[in-house]
């Protein structure tokens, strides 16, 4: 029993209850049954409960993009959605992109182009870039810049990120 020296002189009681739900999620191709509290976001599920810390928390409010994951192939902010709402979904995080030792081409390109410095926004940028490629809407460099603008990079690696995505789109085309 942990000593709680400063607790007021009254018994602790559960003044509330948060529902627990059983859901099935496929995370990085591994299907698992997970018990989640209703108030747990996908981001906190990944980071705090499953210890998949590759997905980052940069604001917790959809204002930075660091938490971007691919949900059923689509890029979303994992901080702004409840895990309980995604029973049956497939989530791909940055940890699930490489095939064994073989990095995803976008990961390779991030290293080659030095498209990051501190690396904290990088998993979100990479997932976002892959989401962008899947969406197939970016045609020009301006499109790419606009469609990568949901991911803030405080180190300012934007121009190198642009190169990564341009290259990837060219690879797609050829």
């Amino acid at each position: 029993m942990i000593e709680k020296p400063h607790r007021p002189n009254q018994a602790a009681e559960a003044a509330f209850s948060i529902q627990k739900h059983k859901i099935i999620l496929t995370i990085n191709e591994v299907e698992q049954e997970i018990k989640v509290d209703a108030w747990t976001t996908v981001l906190d599920l990944l980071r705090e409960h499953l210890h998949l810390t590759g997905t980052k928390k940069g604001c917790d409010h959809g204002q930075c993009g660091a938490c971007t994951v691919l949900m059923d192939g689509t890029r979303i902010n994992s901080c702004l959605t409840l895990a309980v709402m995604h029973d049956g979904a497939e989530i791909t995080t940055v940890e699930g992109l490489a095939k064994g030792e073989q990095l995803h081409p976008v990961q390779e390109a991030f290293i080659e182009q030095d498209a990051f410095q501190c690396g904290y926004c990088t998993p979100g940028q990479i997932c976002s870039a892959i989401g962008l490629i899947n969406e197939g809407k970016a045609k020009t460099p301006e499109d790419i810049r606009d469609l990568m603008s949901g991911n803030i990079c405080r180190c300012g690696a934007y121009n190198n990120i642009l190169k990564v995505v341009q290259e990837a789109l060219e690879r797609e085309r050829s």
């Binding site: 980071r47 810390t53 590759g54 940055v94 940890e95 990961q107 290293i111 030095d114 990051f116 990088t122």
Partner: peptide, 26 residues
């Protein structure tokens, strides 16, 4: 290329809030 590049693009580079041990309080 950065020597820590691979860690950063695969999510294995661990930042301060990402270290865990059972019983960790928040």
């Amino acid at each position: 290329n950065r020597v820590d590049g691979r860690d950063k693009v695969t999510g294995t580079a661990k930042y301060t809030a990402e270290f865990h041990r059972p019983g960790l309080l928040h």
